[in-house]
Design a protein around this nucleic acid. Structure first.
Lengths: 148, 148
DNA sequence: CAGTATCCCTCAAGATACTG
DNA sequence: CAGTATCTTGAGGGATACTG
């Protein structure tokens, strides 16, 4: 990601999203946030990322309104990084990514982590786009209306 | 993404997904694929990406089983890049990304593209994770079972 | 048109030392 | 512990010329 174009006016929501998460670590930081990892050091150890990089990414996510800093809940003097309301709404993306990965990125006997419901202990149902009439929305049944 | 750790055994599906799309262009290429953009040159112009980079990304996506090359449908001698079945299952991720971006990355009067249903011309309902009992699955109601 | 090859440059990322 | 500062490296990316 160098020598980037100015990125003047980007009318595609996906393009703007990629501007925020389109790197090696941001989505993993968000995964950790949903898993309840709030402290700098915990995230750093969990990801194995260099601390200066983590510092940059956290700042970027805070600036984007996805995370916020607040005083640590355990009374220590330090800060925690927690999801904002806007950040919590990334849950569908994280779930969709995880479900796709669970299905397609592991060979048959290979073990991997699972997303489960706390209430039942069973796997979360596959998330699928639904149309207004309640049927499954296939890619062909949707289209993107471009702005002029 | 330099000096990467060997990435020996990565048990998290999101981490593996990020290994595939965790860059500036792959998600945009997939967006274009869902929009029906199949030709190298069309994608290149659409994204404004350098051709050598696009070449690399396309190969990576083909290697990952997300895209496949096939002869052009218009009878020309060239190839097209189209989604595989596995690639089509990325639709939820692309939709979730787009919906989140539509909602959070544009200021009030700012125009942006919209995802619509072909049948009705209306916007696609917001995709939300649902639990087995049919209720909305909140982040707190789910957890990740790690492998040992 | 659809790429590949080459060159160059920037910056993400890593390692480590340092500060409050 | 939670970062910041500094240095280094190399991969990602851009531009362009070239080939089938």
């Amino acid at each position: 990601m160098s020598k980037r174009k100015p990125k003047l006016y980007e009318p595609c929501p996906i393009a703007r999203s990629v501007d925020i998460f389109g790197d090696r670590w941001s989505l993993l930081i968000l995964r950790d946030a949903f898993d309840g990892n709030r402290r700098f050091g915990d995230i750093q150890r969990s990801l194995g990322v260099a601390r200066n990089i983590l510092s940059h990414r956290l700042r970027k996510l805070v600036d984007a309104g996805i995370l916020k800093m607040q005083s640590a809940s355990d009374g220590s003097a330090y800060q925690e990084y927690v999801l904002t309301a806007q950040g919590e709404r990334l849950f569908p993306i994280v779930v969709a990514l995880r479900q796709w990965g669970e299905r397609h990125l592991f060979s048959c006997g290979e073990r991997h982590s699972h997303l489960l419901e706390r209430a039942t202990g069973k796997s979360v149902p596959l998330m699928i786009p639904v149309a207004r009439d309640g049927t499954i929305l296939t890619p062909e049944a949707a289209y993107v209306e471009k702005v002029i």
